[in-house]
């Protein structure tokens, strides 16, 4: 049985700059798994790769916890209409700013809406926005980056100049401008965040495409007469996509925070939708008021738990998909 060339399996002697707690766990010998993965073409090799990634991922306890939390949030997002005890938009002006109780687990907000239901609704919004931004910017970034890297010349220059211009805007300010143009709404926010995040994905993709374009196996594929499309989709993409994928995933948390930041500033997200940033903005007048701290603590906790969970998973993914990337 031969062992496949797997870049990730040299024992990593360098300590990563962005070290996570993973390092403090006992370093298990990495050798045993290389003997298991048989080098067989097609589907089986791929499942072998995924299994390897999962093995490395599992070793990172924080990442596993993060994954569990992300899974939990996804379930909540899907079940939100069924488990929400109240209509999150229903106002009750006779029962505002009440602290947590048996009827309202997280209390009520300035309009007497149930905050527990509101936060569940916020989970749904965060998941929709986070995943949509990831998928869309991944698609646009990978397509344009691969084209730029593979075609080169004028196409490359044009695409790269466009990314330069977009990246000249500090991201929050850029998002605000786009939302000003497209108007308020969740989809407008998603479009704004995609417009600002695809350039980084495209640049990463272009970089790895460039280095693969000159590689021997691509040359080999070309010499046996494979078309450009085939070379890009079958040979370049699968090998070049890892850094871009990792970036896009780590961007989910960023996108969720960006939406909440916009909402907090009263931009983009309609004010009557229960969103974590909007809830915190509503709580600002109550910040120093005794007995009303639930109004900002619960939405803040929701954001922190969500972003940390995604950050842990992203770190774990980065280390397990390609340990060289750190």
């Amino acid at each position: 049985m031969t062992t496949p060339p797997q870049s990730g399996h040299e024992p990593d002697t360098q300590v990563p700059a962005q070290a996570l707690i993973t390092q403090f766990e006992a370093p298990e010998p990495l050798v045993e798994e290389t003997t298991e993965a048989p080098a067989i073409k097609g589907g089986r090799r791929r499942t072998g790769q995924i299994r390897d990634i999962w093995k490395r991922f599992r070793r990172n306890k924080l990442a596993v916890v993060g994954l569990a939390v992300v899974g939990f949030l996804m379930v909540i997002a899907i079940l939100q209409p069924f488990i929400s005890p109240y209509d999150p938009m229903e106002q009750n002006l006779l029962n505002t700013r009440k602290p947590p109780s048996g009827n309202h687990f997280f209390g009520t907000d300035i309009l007497g809406r149930d905050m527990f239901s509101g936060i569940l609704y916020g989970v749904k919004l965060a998941m929709i926005v986070g995943w949509s931004v990831m998928v869309l910017s991944l698609i646009v970034g990978v397509a344009l980056g691969a084209i730029a890297g593979f075609r080169g010349k004028a196409v490359d220059s044009i695409i790269m100049r466009v990314t330069d211009i977009v990246l000249a805007f500090p991201s929050l300010i850029g998002a605000i401008l786009v939302v000003q143009i497209f108007g308020n709404g969740i989809w407008q926010v998603i479009i704004a965040l995609v417009l600002l995040s695809w350039p980084t994905a495209a640049r990463l993709m272009r970089g790895s495409t460039l280095s693969l374009r000159e590689s021997e196996y691509v040359e080999a594929a070309r010499s046996i007469g494979a078309s450009d499309t085939r070379i890009v989709t079958r040979h370049v993409l699968p090998n070049a996509i890892a850094p871009t994928l990792i970036y896009s995933f780590s961007h989910i948390g960023v996108a969720i925070v960006a939406m909440a930041s916009l909402a907090f500033l009263g931009i983009g997200v309609p004010a009557d939708i229960p969103e974590w940033g909007t809830m915190i903005a509503d709580a600002v007048p109550s910040l120093n008021v005794e007995g009303e701290s639930h109004m900002w603590i619960f939405p803040s906790l929701a954001i922190v738990v969500t972003t940390l969970a995604f950050a842990f998973v992203a770190d774990g993914l980065r280390d397990s998909i390609d340990p060289k990337l750190r």
């Binding site: 948390g253 925070v257 909440a260 930041s261 915190i280 922190v304 950050a311």
Partner: peptide
């Protein structure tokens, strides 16, 4: 510190 949003 890196995970918690500025406004929180």
């Amino acid at each position: 510190g890196i995970g918690i949003p500025v406004f929180v």
